[in-house]
Nucleic acid binder design. Structure first.
Length: 158
DNA sequence: ATTCGCGCCGAAC
DNA sequence: GTTCGGCGCGAAT
């Protein structure tokens, strides 16, 4: 029987992150808009020893820990795309077209699958940009810009 | 089985 | 700058 997913929060330097955890796996991540002053986070903070909290803390400190168990990809294509995304080093980007060629697919198919990625940041879909511009991002292009800046410079502004 | 929309792309204008 | 045809995938029908 699958347990009820539990929702946990993490206050990252770039903004609030919420995640769903069930059966010892991370099944979903949301990169949320920064909350207005005085508003409460939408989920209780992950405990200090929680695998996701450890991973996120390390990530925002510029380190790479092994990923905790994750929800399986929904389709074979998304599994191949996930592997390709995980192979993009921190601080680098690829274009939709480059990934499409590497996978024998098409740019739009790549974009569609990225949009469907339930695990942004963990599966670094933010490292995929358009051939001519930033491209889209399911959690908002502000987050995409912030993540790319953070990875490139290590610096972070609000 | 077919249709349709998408985080796109390159060529053309 | 714009428009347009083509593209693979996945969800809906």
């Amino acid at each position: 029987m699958m347990e009820e997913p539990e929702q946990l929060g993490f206050a990252s330097p770039l903004g609030p992150i919420r995640l769903a955890w069930a059966d010892g796996r991370c099944i979903r991540v949301w990169l949320e808009p920064r909350l207005e002053p005085g508003r409460q986070p939408s989920a209780p903070p992950a405990p200090a020893s929680h695998p996701m909290r450890l991973w996120l803390t390390a990530w925002f400190a510029g380190q790479e820990l092994p990923l905790p168990p994750l929800a399986a990809p929904a389709t074979p294509f998304q599994a191949r795309l996930r592997a390709a995304l995980l192979a993009i080093p921190r601080g680098e980007t690829r274009t939709y077209g480059e990934l499409a060629r590497a996978l024998g697919s098409s740019p739009r198919a790549v974009g569609q699958a990225l949009k469907a990625n339930p695990l942004p940041l963990l599966i670094p879909c933010h490292r995929v940009v358009g051939a001519h511009g930033l491209g889209g991002f399911a959690c908002g292009t502000n987050w995409k810009r912030k993540l790319l800046d953070f990875e490139r410079n290590g610096a972070n502004e609000c």
